[in-house]
Amino acid sequence: MSIKIEHLNYVYSEGTAFEKHALRDVNLELPDGQFIGVIGHTGSGKSTLIQHLNGLLKGTSGAVYYNGRNIYEEGYNKKELRSKVGLVFQYPEYQLFEVDVFSDVCYGPKNLGLPADVTEARAREALRLVGLKEKHWKKSPFELSGGQKRRAAIAGILAMEPDVLVLDEPTAGLDPKGRDDILDQIQRLHDERHITVILVSHSMEDIARYVERIIVMNRGQVMFDDTPREVFDHYRELEQIGLAAPQVTYLMHDLAARGWQADVDATTVEEAAASILKCLGR
């Protein structure tokens, strides 16, 4: 059970003046149950990449295997694939359309042709998973706050019970607490349901805090693919492509330059604090 990408290329508007090579020879293996972060500056190909995982975009060449089967095969069931690889777009609340939250969450499972009772059971489960209280279920999506709308939209994907959950900047536009809440919720989902989570984010701090593996995209290519500590060790190269390391990494490098025995690979606040305390003999 995994996703495997082989020599994937994608060219936009081929043959016109707007031609753009958005993905170049991408090779990746995404095994089950990982929590993966994808980073890259705007236009690096990360959004294009994730749209290939559920077959919304079809590579110009190369292949994507889901559980060993090439999704570009004749007659491959794309609808089922999309239910297994759930993709939450940026600002997903803009896709809400039903009269109430509950019906909107039912839309996905209903499209899969599931009977009404199963659909509703799934919707209830999904809404509970994202922590949206029952009193909001029968409200119009437009009566909810920004953070609640975002959860409702994510529930709409979860109701299809995906094995892989891909989220494109799920915290964009939310306030700090809203950001933490959503990410904690996703972490819990990952831990409890053992689903694969692929998180696209611009926040190096968030990435460092939650994921176990980072894929760095640059100009349509995979530039790094490793653990956060290893990837952020290349912070100079990351800066050159418009990215950065988490801020604490800079602190640790600064201290190391001043002769401290600081852990320069620390990427989270906790790791940094622990290393500083150790240096000071506490």
Binding site: V269, E270, A272
Partner: peptide, 8 residues
């Protein structure tokens, strides 16, 4: 972030 580390 710096404030947060200091606080910890």
């Amino acid at each position: 972030q710096a404030t947060l580390v200091a606080y910890e």
